[in-house]
Design a protein around this nucleic acid. Structure first.
Lengths: 349, 349
DNA sequence: TTGTAAGCGTTATCAC
DNA sequence: GTGATAACGCTTACAA
């Protein structure tokens, strides 16, 4: 590859002049010299070497982005987070527009900090983007501790002050429940995640908001929790079917498409027809959910906008500008398909 | 961050000595000096700066990996390639073991080469991993042309000599068809991709292999082609239903889960019960397919092994060692679930 | 066995 | 307006 020396030689100037012209800094260069340099650079196809530039400016223009560790094919978020691949795509694209690239890496899920530490100490990246943060997240704690630049898709311990963007699960589920209410439902149940799930609790809160605002009762047994599996959906539905018919929910909200699928499967097994006898709302708009029978109504996370907001935030941080906002919530989009209908005249069979 | 100078000062030696002990090269260093250096390095938490090291050795230890460009939510492989996110994960993990990281980037789908060119000329990466290669792929052509190191997940123009690893779709589909034959089927149809699809043609060939080997007829209309959409599956099934009952296929093989889902959906709409009246095999083992009703029997691509093989190959290339094998085919795994059963006594209703 | 110094390709400071 | 040159942090040839 040609270097700046080659351009200088071609143009008959010094390397300093070449650098001046190419970096269009405030240094005055005569039009004729500028032309000669540009022409020479173009002719030999010169592009500044990124490594050298980075060494000089002590930056890397690389943002570290971690993958979840080995797909535990049946574990929460292992194989079944339908969001993160596209999120990474949008992140990469937004980063490029800001002049950065994504460096992807993996880490042992039980002990992430050494991997982050190594990347920091070897000067591999300028910043990190975190996903899948949990309450009391060790990565957040570590990076805060090291005062190393990062932004996070997702919240963590509320008392910690750090930059994040998150889906407003509370507003999303609230909108979903309101949609069901507008359809005429009054007996609406929800299947959430276990109590230690941050986003699960936000989504659950959205359910409570909507029910309360509409003055609707939330009987015992309407709020169920389960892990992020299809089976948890089946089990929850079975529980609801054990209630007397006139007390059973006519609509069910979930915190994930996977659990919604479990509900739909168990409903079919028990002869309950979703999209006629029962309404179901998912969360995520996973691929394929549109081809379910019935097609699943769900809440789509605005991952494109989230990625963009995160990069904007990170750019400000890296440029040491005061970021406009440091915590932003983005409402999901309600994707209306076929799984929600007005409640049947009578209770579930 | 501490530099090599800091370690040298702490240990009371020169920076060269520090470098010698830390890189455990053949240079002889006295045990005492070695101890002092190691101790100093440990104490101040020194890790060699990657950028400086890279500049010196004119490498980047970065492998470029491109994401598909903007998810055209309804386009072939846009939102619905269930493979690539996990492939990227495995690739990242294998690369790390070889001392590399993945640099992810995006490119405009209609014109990829400028992006690759830029990454090469700026010295951003040492090599590329390609995915989704097609016949006469412009990226393969360009990289071959530039003699820049790369490996590919997927084949391209047969006459081109370049390193690739691919799923053996032909062997996979053949195994799928043989499985159906072992179940007792004789009237087996296939829904493939359009004729310009390389992998589609390989998979189709596997169908022909199996049918021929078993001496089974392939009547007109048994081989259908369509684009990679759910709708193409529906349409194909509708076409087969137009055949006289005793000529209709009792089993259908597809080249993708998405198309298999289309078939299952249209079958249900027409009152044909997959997993009883009709058998269906997908391809990919996409997330969620295990929760379909019936759970889909499908061919899973061994993306973990493919990623590993690609990195091994690339390592050899980058080390200028002769790679063991430069073209390798990996058979998919047949994941047997509920969508395939022995043929019904009589033809489809 | 250890130290000095060149050099990787830039950018930026300082002369001229 | 332009050109030497130092410096970024490292590895390594060569000298001591």
């Amino acid at each position: 590859m040609p270097t700046i020396k080659d351009v200088a030689r071609e143009a008959g100037v010094s390397i300093a002049t070449v650098s001046y012209v190419l970096n269009k800094k405030a240094v005055a260069v005569s039009p004729e010299t500028r032309r000669r340099v540009l022409e020479a650079a173009r002719r030999i196809g010169y592009r500044a070497n990124v490594t050298a530039r980075n060494l000089r400016s002590s930056e890397t223009r690389l943002i570290g982005y971690a993958w979840y560790e080995p797909p535990p094919y049946d574990a929460p978020f292992g194989r079944l987070n339908p969001i993160l691949d596209w999120f990474a795509f949008y992140l990469a694209r937004s980063a490029e527009q800001a002049g950065y690239h994504l460096l992807t890496f993996t880490y042992p899920p039980d002990d992430p900090t050494p991997t982050y530490d190594e990347l920091i100490r070897t000067g591999r990246v300028d910043a990190f983007v975190l996903t899948g943060t949990v309450d009391n997240d060790p990565r957040v704690r570590f990076l805060l501790d090291q005062a190393f630049p990062f932004v996070s898709f997702g919240r963590s311990t509320e008392a910690w002050d750090f930059p994040w963007v998150d889906t407003d699960g509370r507003a999303g589920v609230r909108a979903g429940v309101e949609y069901l209410i507008s359809l005429g439902h009054r007996r609406i149940a929800i299947l959430g995640w276990p109590e230690d799930s941050l986003s699960g609790n936000f989504r659950l809160a959205g359910y409570c908001d909507a029910m309360e605002a509409a003055g609707l009762p939330v009987p015992d047994g309407y709020v169920l929790r389960g892990v992020h599996t299809e089976q948890a959906g089946r089990e929850a539905f079975a529980r609801w079917m054990e209630m007397p018919p006139h007390e059973r929910p006519t609509a069910i909200v979930t915190v994930s498409d996977l659990m919604a699928i479990g509900i739909m499967n168990e409903a079919r097994r028990q002869g309950v027809q979703v999209g006629r006898d029962l309404s179901v709302i998912g969360f995520d708009d996973a691929p394929m959910t549109e081809y379910l029978q019935p097609a699943l109504t769900t809440l789509q996370q605005p991952i494109d906008e989230i990625a963009e907001a995160l990069i904007t935030m990170l750019e400000a941080i890296l440029n040491k500008e005061p970021p406009a906002e440091t915590n932003v919530l983005m409402p999901p989009r309600l994707i209306i398909r076929e799984s929600c209908v007005p409640p049947p005249e009578q209770a579930l069979p």
